[in-house]
């Protein structure tokens, strides 16, 4: 049984029909990527999964349970955490305070120290800067912080919205390596990316989203070779 299963999801902003019946499945242990142009509906998809938006039609099943109409704060407790687009860190709080917020749903003092150590070993840069105001971190550091904060919630499914946005190639590589590592430690990842090449190189499978509908889905290898993907998203002629 798939871990996450979106079935025929229609999401609206007022009367703007943003998602037009999309279906996606993510199996346990996978890295699945969702690629698409600006405005295709990638962020909308993630916001629908995390409960920040409610679909008008369709189901979002997590381990068989329909969570489509649950509240966003309850969904965190079910094991889904998101690294939002543009990072969404608490800019005025320190690095540590941000991580604390990530552990809000855990409410366990005992695990907290171990969790923090884990984040710091994953991102040594954050350890150096643990008392710095998050808003003053560099873009890459903010991305690490947002990722670390999501991991503090012990997610079984991690949703990442364009983690490579605005980062230098070296940092992009670092972030993607970390995603792979997190995945190896047992976290399932749904990765939204515009950097299709990088995303497809670490993902097992991928979906191509266009104007609110899935137009292609296949293994990452196959998608990389697909002529339309190559033309539209990989910048190859």
């Amino acid at each position: 049984m798939a871990m996450l299963e979106l079935d025929n999801i229609h999401t609206y902003y007022g009367n703007i029909h943003a998602l037009k019946g999309i279906s996606i499945t993510v199996d346990k242990g996978e890295i699945v990527t969702l690629i698409g142009a600006n405005g295709a509906g990638k962020t909308t998809t993630l916001r629908t999964i995390t409960g920040l938006l409610k679909p008008r039609v369709g189901t979002v099943k997590l381990d068989g349970e329909d969570i489509a109409r649950h509240k966003a704060n309850d969904i965190v407790y079910k094991g889904i955490a998101m690294v939002p687009e543009g990072r969404g860190i608490f800019a005025r709080l320190t690095v540590t305070e941000n991580l604390d917020m990530g552990a809000y749903s855990r409410n366990s003092k005992a695990e907290y120290d171990a969790d923090i150590q884990r984040i710091f070993s994953l991102f040594p840069r954050l350890k150096e800067r643990r008392n710095q105001i998050a808003g003053t971190l560099s873009g890459g550091e903010q991305q690490m912080l947002a990722t670390g904060r999501a991991l503090m919630a012990h997610p079984t499914l991690l949703l990442m919205d364009e983690p490579s946005m605005g980062l230098a190639p070296v940092l992009v590589e670092l972030i993607f390596e970390t995603i792979q590592q997190i995945n190896k430690e047992g976290v399932t990842v749904l990765l939204v990316e515009q950097n299709a090449l990088m995303a497809l190189s670490i993902a097992n499978r991928g979906y191509v989203l266009q104007s609110g509908a899935i137009v292609l889905q296949d293994s990452a290898e196959a998608l990389k070779k697909d002529p339309t993907v190559q033309k539209a998203y990989l910048g190859m002629e």
């Binding site: 920040l52 509240k71 704060n73 965190v76 608490f90 809000y104």
Partner: peptide
């Protein structure tokens, strides 16, 4: 902590599991 989070950003606070 929850108050501090909603003061800073309600949406993100909710995504942390805070009941607004």
């Amino acid at each position: 902590r929850a108050w501090k989070a909603i003061r800073e950003d309600e949406d993100v606070a909710q995504a942390m599991g805070i009941n607004l």
